[in-house]
């Protein structure tokens, strides 16, 4: 366990303890579902204003982005993949999420503004790991969304049809 994992897990355990709850655990086998759960909650907020108004089209874009993130992550260094898995586990845990967001409501039930406020609170946090989480997620998610040619119409970007 490196320093960052130590901090993430320490943070989660500390939050649990402060609420009188024990038994916070991280299972690697849960990492895919944690990731999908967290992305499903955060992507619509980060991409608010970029997604099409049409709900069906928006769902397609969200699904495409989520797939792109899943496809991209194995290219990251193993240490960064582990950091992301830890972050997703932390956010998927209702108890730690309560302490991080101040909301008892599960992440997906928060309003878009509440989710954006949560992200902004990480950006402005005194904890370096939360600042890093904000920037890391932001780059990962925006990179995945704007990498898809299907999403370029609103930004009127077209690559030359050369090949």
């Amino acid at each position: 366990m490196d320093r960052r994992q130590f901090i993430f897990r320490g943070l989660a355990l500390g939050i649990s303890a402060s609420l009188g709850i024990t038994g916070w655990q991280y299972y690697a086998s849960e990492s895919d579902s944690n990731r999908d759960w967290v992305l499903s909650a955060l992507l619509p907020a980060l991409l608010y204003g970029a997604l099409p108004k049409d709900t069906t089209l928006a769902q397609h874009e969200l699904a495409r982005t989520q797939t792109a993130i899943t496809d991209f992550m194995p290219y990251l260094p193993v240490s960064q993949q582990q950091e992301l898995a830890d972050l997703f586990a932390l956010l998927a845990n209702r108890i730690s999420q309560l302490a991080l967001s101040g909301h008892i409501t599960a992440l997906p039930q928060l309003s878009v503004n509440q989710r954006l406020a949560l992200l902004a609170s990480w950006r402005d946090s005194y904890l370096l790991v939360l600042q890093q989480a904000y920037h890391g997620l932001r780059e990962l998610l925006y990179g995945a969304y704007y990498g898809q040619p299907e999403h370029w119409l609103p930004i009127t970007y077209t690559a030359p049809k050369f090949c």
Partner: peptide, 25 residues
């Protein structure tokens, strides 16, 4: 100035970020 290079560097989230991206050109 390509979409991923810019989207990952432009600041803000949500509508503010989308508004900047809409002016990419």
């Amino acid at each position: 100035i390509h979409p991923v290079l810019m989207a990952t560097k432009l600041i803000g989230t949500g509508e503010a970020h989308a508004a900047l991206m809409a002016q990419l050109n």
